[in-house]
């Protein structure tokens, strides 16, 4: 194993952020993730923004969305579902 393979890049961290926040990263990967955060302010800020977004979005309920916004979102989902897959 090379040194580069041991160290997480910023791009790899972004790809792993969901597993990190869900607590499903294996132990060694978790340590490497935290180690990267300790030395990379950019990724630490990114993680902080992700946490805040989840926190804010988690407070949204169906009732808190206007009928127009609901209709618009449902339309977007329907359009996405009916789009031909590549």
């Amino acid at each position: 194993m090379t040194l580069a393979a041991n160290d997480l890049t910023c791009q790899e961290l972004v790809e792993l952020v969901t597993e990190y926040l869900e607590g499903s990263l294996p132990a060694e990967a978790r340590i490497e993730f935290d180690e990267h955060l300790a030395m990379c302010d950019g990724c630490a800020n990114y993680l902080d923004q992700m946490r805040r977004t989840i926190e804010i979005a988690g407070k949204l309920t169906e009732a808190s969305i206007s009928p127009q916004a609901q209709e618009s979102l449902l339309g977007a989902f329907r359009g996405w579902k009916s789009r031909p897959q590549p």
């Binding site: 194993m1 090379t2 040194l3 160290d7 300790a38 030395m39 990379c40 302010d41």
Partner: peptide, 24 residues
């Protein structure tokens, strides 16, 4: 200063100076 970042760079610089066989 961001010492944890400089130490990280130091570890990589040492590795590249040593060559692939002795990098780790």
């Amino acid at each position: 200063p961001q010492p944890a970042t400089v130490t990280f760079i130091g570890a990589h610089a040492a590795a590249i100076a040593a060559g692939e066989a002795r990098a780790v």
